[in-house]
């Protein structure tokens, strides 16, 4: 067999992109921002455990949650499976492909050798869609690649069975049921509630808006974790990378969330949400300002307290704005309930 006819789209993020492309293939017309918003993908977490050499942060929910939450809120059903045995995993994938079913698989990004070497890092939570096979090669629709690519069997197996944190264990998924009618209004509101909870209600000091504030406070300590200037420069560059280019759609997913709000305002027929989408876009612009500032500091290698505090102050402004934004979104939701 060869390729299953599949509309390849590049997307901001691999998980929401994969879910979107699979659902579009299944006949459900939905955009990536809608999938991301309904699944409450927006988030913030600043993480430093004693076993970690260096702090890190996240601007999105845990891997896998986009698929799970979207399914729960829309009634779409995915079938997901992990494997112990690579041969069984390969057979299961091949059987589905032979039945013309495109399948999403979780892989370590490092083995996706259709990307240039300098670009590949070990991240176990990359999602791609396999859309066919021929001999020892597989056809891949990867949201981060402009075209449909090919990967050889060995690299795919290594990617699906890499060990370590978030080990993929051969995980694959595909949609098995799409309801004829989905109550999009309800799904959107549930998604917004989830986002408000992510950002404001988790009672831990390193998650949500509190996490942004913690990041702001702690960034001045970063030099003490670094072995040398090279390492520190690399870590500060990663702020830019995590916010802009590691599948966020720019501005740490805030641009993507603004697009969701704009679409949601049409579905819910609520022009105030359109206004709020503009606010979210501006919040994203501020995140981009942080990315640019971090890249500048990293390039100049001037890690003085003033410079790092400068980034911290920008972060504090984001925290304040996001706190008031999500509080307002909460009020908007309860008002909306009353008007229906």
């Amino acid at each position: 067999m060869t390729q299953i006819p599949f509309r390849h789209i590049m997307a901001a993020h691999c998980e929401s992109g994969t879910v979107t492309a699979l659902l579009n293939h299944q006949g459900l017309k939905i955009s990536e921002p809608m999938v991301f918003g309904i699944a409450s993908g927006i988030f913030f977490g600043y993480i430093k455990t004693p076993s970690m050499d260096f702090p890190t942060f996240a601007v999105r929910s845990m891997p896998g949650q986009i698929r799970e939450k979207f399914a729960k809120r829309t009634g779409v059903k995915f079938r997901g499976e992990t494997f112990r045995n690579p041969e069984k995993a390969e057979r299961a994938l091949n059987d589905l492909l032979d039945k013309n079913q495109p399948v999403a698989v979780q892989v370590d990004f490092f083995y996706m050798n259709y990307f240039p070497t300098w670009y590949r890092i070990h991240v176990n939570v990359h999602f791609i869609t396999i859309i066919g096979r021929e001999g020892d090669k597989y056809y891949v629709s990867d949201s981060y690649h402009p075209k449909i690519s090919e990967i050889d069997r060995d690299a795919l197996t290594k990617g699906r069975f890499a060990g370590g944190a978030f080990a993929p264990k051969g995980f694959m998924f595909y949609p098995v049921y799409v309801p004829d009618e989905i109550d999009m209004g309800k799904a959107i509101k549930d998604g917004m509630k989830g986002a408000i909870s992510n950002m404001l209600k988790i009672p831990l000091p390193f998650l949500g808006v509190r996490g942004i504030r913690r990041f702001a406070d702690k960034i001045v300590d970063w030099p003490k974790y670094a072995k040398d200037e090279n390492m520190l420069s690399d870590k500060v560059f990663r702020i830019t990378l995590f916010l802009e280019d590691q599948g966020t759609g720019g501005g740490g997913f805030r641009f993507l969330y603004a697009s969701f709000l704009q679409e949601a305002s049409k579905v819910l027929n609520n022009p105030r949400l359109n206004e709020m989408s503009k606010e979210m876009m501006e919040i994203g612009d501020g995140w981009r300002e942080i990315s640019l500032a971090a890249a500048q500091v990293a390039k100049k290698r001037d890690f003085s307290r003033e410079n790092l505090e400068g980034i911290g102050n920008l972060l504090r402004v984001r925290a304040d704005l996001e706190e008031s934004f999500f509080t307002k979104l909460g009020k908007e939701l309860s008002n909306h309930k009353q008007t229906i």
Partner: peptide, 27 residues
């Protein structure tokens, strides 16, 4: 290195834009 950003289009709507990656493009 191409990526997708979400951006404001000329008609005021928001949508995907495929372009060069900021980080690799500049640094």
């Amino acid at each position: 290195h191409q990526v997708v950003y979400y951006a404001e289009k000329s008609d005021g709507t928001y949508g995907p834009l495929q372009t060069g990656c900021y980080m690799t493009g500049n640094y």
